[in-house]
Amino acid sequence: MIDSDDLMGGEAVIEIVENQLAENNPARVKETLMRLMLEGVEREEAIQYIACALCVELVDVVNHQATFNEQRFNTNLDALPEMPWAEDL
C-alpha cells in the first residue's frame, strides 16, 4: 500500500501537476492555480496544495483499486487551500 505521506511529499506528484498545467488537462488544475495565486498563495505552495488534492485520488486508486474520482478531485480543488479530507488520509 502507498503511504499518503510519501505521496504528498513526492516529486512525482508535483511533476504530474506540472504536466497537467502544461497540457491544461484537466483545465480545473490551472483554474485552481490561478485562483490560489490571486488569493495571495505563492505558486510553489499552490502547486503543493493541488498535489495534495491529487494524492487523495492516487491513494484511493492504488490502495483500493478504485477509479479516479474526477468529481471528488474537482470538489477538493475547489476547497483549496482548505484540506478537509486531510484527516482521512
Rank of each mutant, 00 (worst) to 15 (best):
L33G: 00
K30Y: 04
N25M: 01
N25Y: 03
N24T: 01
N19R: 15
V29I: 11
L38F: 00
R28H: 02
E39K: 12
F73W: 05
N24L: 03
A66I: 00
E23I: 01
R28M: 10
V17D: 06
V59D: 06
V61R: 07
V29E: 02
N63K: 07
F68C: 05
E44K: 13
E42Y: 11
E15Y: 05
A27C: 00
I50H: 02
F73V: 01
E57V: 07
N19I: 09
T32E: 04
E31P: 00
Y49P: 03
E57A: 09
I50S: 04
A66N: 12
G40P: 03
K30E: 08
M34S: 15
N74W: 03
E45W: 04
L33F: 04
K30M: 07
E15N: 12
L54Y: 12
E23M: 09
M34C: 12
M34K: 14
M37N: 11
E57T: 05
E45S: 12
D60A: 15
Q20D: 12
N63R: 04
G40C: 07
A22P: 00
Q71A: 15
C55T: 13
V61T: 05
N24Q: 10
N19K: 15
E23R: 07
K30W: 05
F73H: 08
V59K: 06
L36G: 12
C55N: 07
V62E: 15
R35V: 09
R35S: 07
T67V: 11
N19Q: 13
N25K: 12
N69P: 03
L58D: 09
